[in-house]
Design a protein around this nucleic acid. Sequence first.
DNA 1: TTTTGGGG
Length: 491
Amino acid sequence: MSNREREGYNYATLAEAVKLVGETVHFYGVVAAYEQPKPTRGRDYLCTMTVIDTSYNSPGLRVLFFAPRLDQMPRVKDLGDVIRFHRLQMKTHSDAPQANGNERSRSSFVLFRGCEGDDYVPYQNPSGTSFTMEASDRNIVGLLRTWASSHSIDTLAGTSKYMKQIKDVAVDSYCDVCCKILFVSEQSAENKVIMHVWDGTDASPACLNPSDHSENGDPGQDLWIAKQVAVPVDVMRGFPALGTVLPLVPDGMPENDSRPLLPVAGDWVKLRNIRFRVRKGLYEGVLYPCSKIGILSPSTQTVQNCERAYEERLASEALRLPQWCPQPPQSMLVTGYDHVKLSALREVLTYPEVTYKFRCMVRVMATWPSDVLDFCEPTDGSAAQPIDHPDQGDFVFVVRLTLEDPTARLHAFLYGEDAVEFFGGCPAANLRRQGDTVVVLKRKVDRLLGVSEHGPPNPPWVTCCLKSYYLDKARPRETRRYRVFGTRFAG
DNA sequence: TTTTGGGG
């Protein structure tokens, strides 16, 4: 044992430490930023963080800590916690000071809660029982706690030039996002963990990629399945009413046991260096090996801003609207219930009463049948009835619409008299014998779907009324369906 | 032993 250790450790302030490039130092710091450990391309794990103290609080000191095993990595519970490092090597990187720790070079750490008045027992001490805790140590921890509690420690969180809200994400560029983990799903078949994240804002409507074109000829069904697979309705019940929930899928990440540690539902995180892409017309975040997951305290300014903005959205009729629909809202459809509050589709899907009525602001993504010629069918539906039966009264509209807003997708049926009203009094008929009617219908449906000669379809925002019902009284929730009613083309 | 990765 060296003289120094026998006398107790001599801790540098961070201001002193950054001047000791090339030397091995001990120091205490308050954790101002922390990224989950992740595997390196080499043999070790790496964990990165920024620590601050009174002598050096902006931008703080970056610390890299390498170790062969996950349980040897710092597992910071909360920003503002106090960490003590022994035997870190001071370096510079890109003209900024940096401290390097390596378990293989006997670097070590202990972690304390940041709460003022908490005890002086570390909540993490990977080196076991042999750690020093003198009166001077308790003094340093106490002083750092007092200082941190009166000081904003998150000055770095949420201020990077890469930071984006979900409403502003775009494809093909790397960015950072502060968001809440709402749901973590294990896709056991692919051995993938998908996190579902939310920040209270609405993703912009995304175009369908040419590769998204359905194989079964029913694009609406594909779109609906894409959304259902992502988040089951039962899980959705626990989500906030508004705002887009995006899946975050790993790409090129190492297999199971050497994956980075993932946050759990309820955590706020800062996702760093992630990208977005569009699949089946839905944005999804992509987590690469170069991405990082930083923790955020609920008290962080960025988190508070998200939560406050969301509370405002919830309370305001205007702000509840999808953030990408025109203001003031316009709609080529009108409803007879304009006084009824607008519901997001996630609210519709998760409403506790199975039979209920809603008014929504949505986009119509697809119809089924996709050909207007097939919008009506014979009322008795039997094969014995000739398909070309000329009698109008024997036909009924049966059309399934795939509706979308920033919160969800759902199928709603346009049926019978509700459909006749919807299409402006156009009666049900054998449409294969009603060329004029078909032309009128097709023109309306194309407008509704935003079909254009150039480029992909871009459906406009429209208001519509939905009512929910069930097919089987014994299993109302499982057999819940939706119908469009009280809605028609304007003019 | 001094990598690995290091705010792009």
